[in-house]
């Protein structure tokens, strides 16, 4: 599913003549198989988010290649990557990243609109999705009118609405209390089991890390451990 091949990444700070190079990832290689849940753990600043952003195509790797579903995405241009994200990836962010001026319904509908689905089909799909995440009564609520857990469910619904085979999550429980965290983990397990969705989840929470079939531990931009989380 995902094949990360000898990725090295550094950020360049400052302007010409006064450049600082911040090395973040060093020669990272790993694979995620279809239907797997892989968690990535590591201390703050270890490069977890950077790794996920590279896989998501939000930034370009300094070196190395990333192959997702047999596509060399690290060579995609911006438009190609955007299309690829729409077709193949769902995203769950720590702070939900909902559009505040849109209702829960509209936020979930957005990927369908981008894909060019007809209005009727969109309505139905979105309504089904709202029900699936248990928010059928909250469709007309704006994000500011929802609790953190509800907002995260909206964002999950948005990530799932196009039924992508892969979901990337950066600290999905970071803003949730432990009870809603449990709900979310349960939901992830069900999706994985019932629909075979592949998950790559970044966390620094042991509880979350444990749902992974495999866990990769990062430290100072290197993989220090890989295996079942203990």
């Amino acid at each position: 599913m995902i094949n990360v091949n000898q990725i090295t990444h550094h950020f360049v700070l400052g302007k010409k003549g006064n450049k600082t190079i911040v090395p973040v990832l060093k020669n990272i290689s790993f694979q995620v198989n279809q239907g797997e849940i892989v968690t990535i753990v590591g201390r703050s600043g270890s490069g977890k988010s950077t790794l996920l952003n590279l896989i998501s195509g939000f930034i370009h790797p300094t070196e190395g290649e990333i192959i997702i579903q047999d596509k060399k995405v690290s060579e995609f241009n911006e438009t190609e990557f955007a299309d690829f994200r729409l077709q193949h990836m769902g995203f769950i962010f720590q702070n939900f990243q909902l559009i505040p001026s849109m209702t829960a319904f509209q936020n979930i509908e957005l990927p369908l609109i981008l894909k060019g689905m007809s209005e009727n089909a969109r309505r139905k799909t979105t309504a089904d999705m709202l029900k699936k995440v248990g928010l059928e009564d909250f469709g007309e609520h704006y994000p500011s009118e929802l609790s953190g857990g509800q907002q995260q469910r909206v964002s999950i619904a948005r990530a799932l609405v196009l039924e992508p085979p892969l979901i990337l999550a950066d600290e999905p429980t970071g803003s949730l209390d432990s009870e809603t965290e449990q709900d979310l983990l349960q939901f992830i397990r069900e999706l994985n089991r019932d629909l075979g969705v592949t998950f790559l989840i970044i966390t620094h929470d042991d509880e979350v890390a444990r749902i992974g079939d495999r866990t990769i531990a990062l430290a100072d931009g290197k993989i220090v451990e890989s295996g079942v989380f203990a």
């Binding site: 911006e78 955007a82 077709q87 990243q97 948005r158």
Partner: peptide, 10 residues
């Protein structure tokens, strides 16, 4: 956000 979830620059 739109770009993140797959809106192309075009």
């Amino acid at each position: 956000i739109m770009k993140a979830i797959g809106a192309s620059p075009k």
